[in-house]
Design a protein around this nucleic acid. Sequence first.
DNA 1: GATGAATGAGCCTTCATTCAT
DNA 2: GATGAATGAAGGCTCATTCAT
Lengths: 186, 186, 186, 186
Amino acid sequence: MRADARSNRQDLVEAAWKLLAAEGPDASLRAIAQEAGVGIATLYRHYPTRDDLILGVVDEVQARVREILERHASRWEVSPELAWSGIVHDIAALQIGTLVHQVSPGIASSEALARGGVERRARALRFLEPVLRRAKDAGLVREDVRAEQLMLGLAAITRALPRGIDSLMPGQRDWLVDVYLRGLRP
Amino acid sequence: MRADARSNRQDLVEAAWKLLAAEGPDASLRAIAQEAGVGIATLYRHYPTRDDLILGVVDEVQARVREILERHASRWEVSPELAWSGIVHDIAALQIGTLVHQVSPGIASSEALARGGVERRARALRFLEPVLRRAKDAGLVREDVRAEQLMLGLAAITRALPRGIDSLMPGQRDWLVDVYLRGLRP
Amino acid sequence: MRADARSNRQDLVEAAWKLLAAEGPDASLRAIAQEAGVGIATLYRHYPTRDDLILGVVDEVQARVREILERHASRWEVSPELAWSGIVHDIAALQIGTLVHQVSPGIASSEALARGGVERRARALRFLEPVLRRAKDAGLVREDVRAEQLMLGLAAITRALPRGIDSLMPGQRDWLVDVYLRGLRP
Amino acid sequence: MRADARSNRQDLVEAAWKLLAAEGPDASLRAIAQEAGVGIATLYRHYPTRDDLILGVVDEVQARVREILERHASRWEVSPELAWSGIVHDIAALQIGTLVHQVSPGIASSEALARGGVERRARALRFLEPVLRRAKDAGLVREDVRAEQLMLGLAAITRALPRGIDSLMPGQRDWLVDVYLRGLRP
DNA sequence: GATGAATGAGCCTTCATTCAT
DNA sequence: GATGAATGAAGGCTCATTCAT
């Protein structure tokens, strides 16, 4: 049954991600469990507190971000512009807004969450900074932009919207990311 | 309407605005009434549904936006760039994010709210479009930017954050608005 | 409606008392509200925390104890023995066991409860001690018995029993109180 | 039965006893299993229902009571008073309160438990009555005291208190037992 | 035999909303 | 008009109990 457990755990993280992105930070745990197809108590077994679950999602998201960076790494030599744009658009598509904010100090709803967030933020910056460096060297980003600002900006742009903004104005998110990218240029 | 009634009405709108900006769309009605210094039943007398209250706040915000536009209108001839930047920064400072989204079709939590939102959105566009026209003429905004996009972009940037992002990274909001302005240029 | 509210408040205290005595310290708040004939939220309006409710019951019980003392005060001159026995039996009939223990330091489930308990315990001792003094003077209680011991002893004897011990062995409580009274003699 | 199985069984009974005495009748089964160092499913294998476990503890306690009686039997000829007092104090130290009540008819939470309790109560009385007889003959207990009353009285005095009454008022339990013993005298 | 995983039921608590004064 | 009181619904969390390995 170890296999089932791992599968449930993964399902829970994905369900939480989905609902946090879709409904914002107040998504009900019951709804998350249901989305994952498990009982509420199973959610609690894997993630004893709401904070644990959120941090679990953050970890999952960070793994996805690394995948994105690796995927685009090879394209950098061909066209830095396309690589950089692709990276930012792909990260934006992850809908990290709600998450980034929930683990931010001064915003996080609990001390534990804030502490867990500090670690993960530091880790995230460690692997974002080299890429930002590259973008600056390629003349795609102004020198005075800091990795943390960049990340918070992306978070602001992609914060969860109930039922998604795309139904309201298709392509709005990508449009906004493009404006953002242009605004970052020297 | 009695004088005290009108006063209460105004207090309620301002309290609602403040708490919606500070705590997001889930601000408690009881907290709003308390902030306004009236009983919960008084809130319901003036605004029978949550939607009515939100639309009331939207009306108030629109009045403020008009004030901003008028205030900067005279400065336009001196420096279009300063006028435009001032307008956008001032509107951003109104924290309209939560509101704009709550009355957006496909996002609004009720049919009544969505319908009320459509009217107000149309009205807002009517007085925003001339200004956007001017900004385009002054070479400050690309031709293909539509007023609605602009507004949604601003909303995305200024959406409410519990306890405010400023404690997290001071000046972040203005930085983001500047990036946004730069990104909008031709 | 002030009258209704007061009535509900009183009903809640009595319901809480009854169920705490009958089911012990884990009596469900919902059950208490139902017993009082009000909704659960009404209970919370009057007593925002479980501790507040328990302390409310303690206050009610103390008032009843004072009534008992006053009622028997006049009989003291006729027969100290009967007065003393009547007092102790009547207090025992109040089923104070669960309450006394719940507000005892080191046992109380919360800091607030313990603090509220300390005050009330002191108050209780203030009006119990004169009576105990009288009982000692009448040769009914040994000199080395302290009021606090007496009270805890009574509490131990009358602690809540699910569905009542009387169905198990009728008269057992009074028998035990009599044994207790005899054991306290010089 | 395997050796380790028997060991687990014994560990479970002791853990249950300890926690029932310390936390009262609502001690969690999970906590008991953990205290015994086994998985929750192992507890259920040995004791399919909560009632079975409680009856198991009762059996264990009865064995201990017999030990106590045997241990003090020889001292009876030397000093009946010391023997009797030692017996009652030692039994009181077993904290039987919670158990006795849980298996009492009219109080027991299930039919099975009540039925199991009746048998054990009868058995207990069979080996308590001779001792009570001896105590009466030695003039230590009044003739009209029945063994069942005696036992219920002891149970009332020693019922479990969360975290123990001893932290509240050291020596209170022994004081109360002494009062009880005195109260039983002719 | 032993174990951890899964589950629904039930309690505590808060909120939007209605009602009586 | 204004107010506090009352209410049920819904979410967070824990526990006893069953199941698959």
